[in-house]
Structures are given as structure tokens and as C-alpha cells.
Write a protein that binds this DNA or RNA. Structure first.
Lengths: 336, 336
DNA sequence: CCAGACAATCGAAGCGCTTCGACTCGCCGG
DNA sequence: CCGGCGAGTCGAAGCGCTTCGATTGTCTGG
């Protein structure tokens, strides 16, 4: 293991000079810099992370807390995680992967040990138990998702209210009067995950404004559960011609069921999904959808956090504007 | 930020004593231990990770390299990653998330900087460019997946040869004589990802032994590509009554197509999938499948690595035995 | 009753890096 | 010709922890 001191000796300079070459915090003559850089290369020197962290009290690590549940929004989570990791690297940070399992303790551990310089929390609930800790520990953090009280916190999320509104608007614009929402699993609402409720808010308020009749039903996802939900919806509102789906696991089952019942998409029934682009494109019908900009969220979160760590205080809440892409699953409401 | 020294002072002992209480590397009297532990609690002490790493040259961090591609086996990857993270925690390790993006450089960086004590590589290719580095740097590592040359490396993987064999065996046992394999995307085979080729090996050799006629076709996944692949297969071998699918993105399309063509599953056609359990259960037909034991692989990988780090040298290659679960998609071959 | 063994504790020497103050030049303006 | 300045470099003092003797008692067996 090559050390700074060895590089210094090899280059014929002092250790501090090498350090300044590395950090650029003081001016170094061109010749010295080159000599040092050459030694670094020749010896294959890599600064020791621990020593660096100790001396500078900066670990150059960002902690990312992902939810433990592997049953839900997996691709989205993964995409965010990967976006976080790659974006972090471009800013010179590495990413520490924490699972939700440890819960609040993880916050304590990371903040206390100086393992990471800051953290990004995913899957934030409206009344998340990690938040008080975050506030009191003054740990630089960015949330992906929106809690009930955002005071003093930096958050990044898709604007789900606007997303909901956009879906209804699209269907209303096509003449649909009865729209059903196939929502997330009941557990998601019970946990008060913010995005689900905000979407619903947006759906409802725009429905009110446009005179659309809205029916919302949570749905577990999977074929059987979706079948039950859909048949219940069609019993209650036989005139339903528009569906909004916010549950990846219900998308394909829904399409299969509609086909099976002889309802053509989009001639008889229109479907709008809130899902990652990939899902919308790969479905059996190319879906009109509002995409979940997972990558962008991950990237934004890191950039907000890095800004904080650099002392550039920044915006508190960033809501990414939703974009609806019209594909093959929505069209004018059938004339009756 | 509370330090060891402050805890020592508060407890009226020396710093080294506190350290030994924490590490348990020397015997400490019960009374002293309790006093120290009390001080730790009262002061809310957390050891500083950097200092610890520097002094002990152990970071207690495991690096996990996940593939950058977000288009393939995402749920499996995620499940493995989460299993790695949680298992690592139970052994006192944290997990650093590296994306494939950096490629071999990441290995150099991590090995050189002492950022992590060891690493786990996912999505290993037959002739992976990270392997030479791994060998020369003597970095403790575990691969998930099997390269061509496993010499000096520790690997964990599902036994894909046996998996392939098992699938054929199951179908052969049910009387199927013509079996088609819908494989991974061509790119996967071109990259020489080991598991795809090994599965194929297993399929073929058992087909030979059981006298089954086997047709293998790579498939991109998605509806259109799968449709093309299936119709080609049925043109070439109209008597095909058994399908083996090893591409999650082709599973649902395949089932839809079969339905559409009026081929009943499992009465007319049997389908066996190689996929995560969740996919098999949530499909429109509950699939007979060999599951990808993602969690188990993650857990095993960590345990192998921890063993290495503890100086307990261990087995070189661990192949997890496949298990086929019979569900609703396979049955006796139709009588002609 | 003493040598030797053992348990419990302390002190000090680092681990490899960053950073601050100080020092040495060469150069400029007065 | 001298004081002062900035660029470039060095030395040394830590950062908070682990770990290796060394030290002090306390027991034990002979």
C-alpha cells in the first residue's frame, strides 16, 4: 500500500505539497505538479479513504436509504438508486446502500459515525419516523418523496397532484365522463405514502372541475386481485369508459381483462397509466402514460445534496412537472 | 461530536479501556464495562468510522458492483442487492453501491483506497475484464455468476446447467417430445453471460439424454419480439408442445399469444419458466418454474465474503441447486 | 511464603492524511 | 536600495481510533 509520504519522497517534495497537488487548495508550480503527478502514476498511489475522512472530516460518501420491501415499485427504486450512484460519482461521491430495515437507527448510526456526509431517503411516508432524527441531528439530507411537514427539509418528488390532474384532464378532454382509478395496494394508502394520496387529490380536484365522475379503488395488483377490482368497478359504474392505473402490477392484468371482456382499447375504453416509461412502452398495448422520472429524481436529489454539502443552500422542495405522453391506449370516449 | 477520549474521561478510565470494551479484544471487569457502557449511552457516543478505518485498516464496508443496465433482470438484481445489504448488516458491514459504469476502474479505486474490505460483483461475464485486476490486487471478492475461468475466485450462482436439465426433465417426464426454448435477448448471448449459456447446455444435454427435440431461439422480450419468435418457432416445429422461457419480458407476451391462438395452457401446451418466484406466481397463469433464488444468492455471497475476511478460507464455487415448482402451466403432453 | 500465571488496566506509538502557520525567494514600487 | 507582497514550499500538529507492550494486583501451586 503506497502512502502519501512515499509519493512525496519519490517526487522529492514534502508530504503537504503532494496533498496540495491532490486537492488544489494552494497554488503549486507547474513543474512540481508534474513531478508529483508522475510519481503518483508510477507508484500507483491511491489516497487512503479512512485517513482522508479522519483528517478532513469528510467521507465523500452519500448514504442512500432504500425501502426494504421488494414487492413494490422495484424498477423505479432501482432506477433511482442507479441514477443516484452514477450522479454521485460525477461529483466525487460514493454511495452507501442502507435498507429501510434499520429504520431510524440507521440515521443515528450514519450521522453519528461520520460514515457519510449526507443522506438521501427514499419512500418517505407522510409522517416518517426518521424525520425528527434528521432534523435534530442536522444531518444534511434530501428526501425523495414528500412528507406532511416539509419544514426545514429538502425534498425532491414528482408533482403527483399535477400528475393526477393531468390524467383526468386528458380523459376529460377526450369526452370521458366516468373514470375509474385503479390505485395502489391498500397498504400503501394505510401507510400514508404521500405520493398515492397526492395523486388522488389531483385526480379528484380536477375531476370536480371538469365534471368527471371519479371512482377510486385500491388494488393489490396481480391477476386475481385486479379482476376483482375491475369487476367491482364495472358493477358500480357500468358506464366507465376511462381508467387511470397507478399500480404497475395491475397494468397488464387490466389490459388482459378488458380484452377478455371484449372491450377494445382505446375504442371502447381508454387507459392512462402512471408508471415508468419502460412499462408503458412494453405493455401489450402501448400505454398513454405519465412517466415516473426515476432517473431525474435520483439526479436531482444528489445535486441538491451536493449543493448543501458545498454550503450552497438551495431550494427546499423541488416538484418535477409531470409529462403525459399520448400513446395507443387512449382515445375519444365512445358515443352512446 | 463525542469522542472516545471524552467517554473515557466521563467513565474515569483510559481511552484504550473504552476501546477494549467496544471491541471485546481483551478482558474487562464487569464493573468497568458497565461504567463505560453507561457513559457511552449517556453521551450518545458513536465511534468515528474514518478513525476506526485508519487505525485498524478495516472499513467494515463491502462494495457491491451492480450492472448499469437497468433494462434486464431488474427485480432479481434489486432483490440480490437488498439481500446483500441486510445480510451484510447482520455481520457488521455496510454496503457501498458501485455501478458497472466505472468498470474495472472501480475495482482499482476501491482496492487502492481501502474504501471497502472486499467486494461482490454481480452480472459477471464469462470473460470479465474486472477479473484480472481482482486477481492481481488480491482484493477479497465474491462473484455472483460464473466466469469461464474460476481459478482463484470465489463464486456463487444458481446451478444453471442443472436448471436447464430440470426443465427438460420435467417436460420429458410429462411426455413432451418437442420443446422450444425462448431465451434471453441475443445481446445476452453475445456478451457471453455465463448463466444463459450454461442453461442452454443443461437443456441440450438432458434433451439428448431423454430424446427430446429442442429448439432454442433468443428473444428480445416485449410483445412484438416475442410474437415474432413464437410464430417462427411454430412454423419450424408445429408439433411443439412444451416451452421453456428464460426471459422475464417474454413470459406474459408468450402466455397472451398462446391464448390468442387458442392453445390452452396446460392442456395443449406446457410452459416452464426460469424466473423469480414472484413473476411465476403473478403471471396470468400460475407458472411451473425454476425460481431464481435471488435472496439466497445475495446472502451466500456475503457469507462467503465475510468468511474470507475473517480468514476462514472457504469453498471456491458454490452452485445453488435449482428447485422446480409445479404450478398450473404444465401438464401431460396432449395425445395425438 | 514465593515464583509464576493470569486478569485488568494504562500509556504511548502510530494509522495516512489535511491544514495552518511559517519560511524562502524573486520582484515591485517608492 | 529596502520594505512588502505573493507564489511556492515545508514542518508539524493533529484528526479519533486501535494495539502493543508494560504495569499492577490477585491467585495458585509447590
Amino acid at each position: 500500500m503506497v502512502t502519501l509520504a512515499e509519493v512525496a519522497q519519490h517526487a522529492g517534495v514534502s508530504a503537504s505539497t503532494v496533498s496540495y497537488v491532490l486537492s488544489g487548495k494552494r497554488s503549486i508550480s507547474a513543474t512540481t505538479r508534474q513531478r508529483v503527478e508522475r510519481s503518483i502514476r508510477e507508484l500507483g498511489y491511491h489516497p487512503n479513504a479512512g485517513a482522508r475522512a479522519l483528517a478532513s472530516s469528510r467521507s465523500n460518501i452519500i448514504a442512500l436509504m432504500v425501502p426494504l420491501r421488494t414487492d413494490i415499485y422495484v424498477p423505479v427504486m432501482m432506477e433511482i438508486a442507479i441514477a443516484v450512484a452514477t450522479t454521485a460519482r460525477t461529483h466525487g461521491y460514493d454511495v452507501l446502500l442502507l435498507t429501510g430495515e434499520e429504520g431510524p437507527d440507521a440515521v443515528r448510526r450514519v450521522a453519528g459515525s461520520g460514515l457519510a456526509d449526507g443522506m438521501i431517503l427514499m419512500d418517505v411516508e407522510l409522517d416518517d419516523e426518521r424525520l425528527p432524527l434528521l432534523r435534530e441531528s442536522a444531518q444534511p439530507a434530501v428526501l425523495i418523496g414528500l412528507p406532511a411537514d416539509t419544514g426545514g427539509l429538502t425534498c425532491v418528488d414528482l408533482d403527483f397532484r399535477a400528475t393526477g390532474a393531468l390524467c383526468v384532464e386528458h380523459l376529460a378532454g377526450l369526452g370521458h365522463r366516468d373514470v375509474a382509478v385503479i390505485g395502489e395496494a391498500p397498504a400503501v394508502y394505510e401507510r400514508h405514502t404521500g405520493f398515492a394520496e397526492r395523486t388522488l387529490d389531483g385526480l379528484r380536484s380536477r375531476a370536480r372541475e371538469t365534471g368527471v365522475r371519479l371512482l377510486h379503488r385500491p388494488c393489490e395488483g396481480g391477476y386475481d386481485a385486479t379482476a376483482a377490482t375491475v369487476s367491482r368497478i364495472l358493477d358500480e359504474r357500468p358506464d366507465t369508459t376511462g381508467f387511470v392505473v397507478q399500480n404497475e402490477a395491475a397494468v397488464e392484468p387490466l389490459l388482459a381483462l378488458l380484452r377478455q371482456q371484449g372491450r377494445a382499447v382505446p375504442e371502447d375504453v381508454s387507459v392512462v397509466a402512471v408508471c415508468p416509461e419502460q412499462v408503458a412502452v412494453q405493455a401489450s398495448v402501448r400505454l398513454t402514460s405519465v412517466s415516473l422520472p426515476a432517473q431525474e429524481m435520483g439526479r436531482h436529489a444528489v445535486e441538491q445534496l451536493v449543493a448543501k454539502l458545498d454550503g450552497r443552500g438551495d431550494a427546499e422542495v423541488v416538484l418535477l412537472p409531470p409529462a403525459l405522453t399520448v400513446r395507443a391506449s387512449s382515445g375519444p370516449a365512445p358515443v352512446r
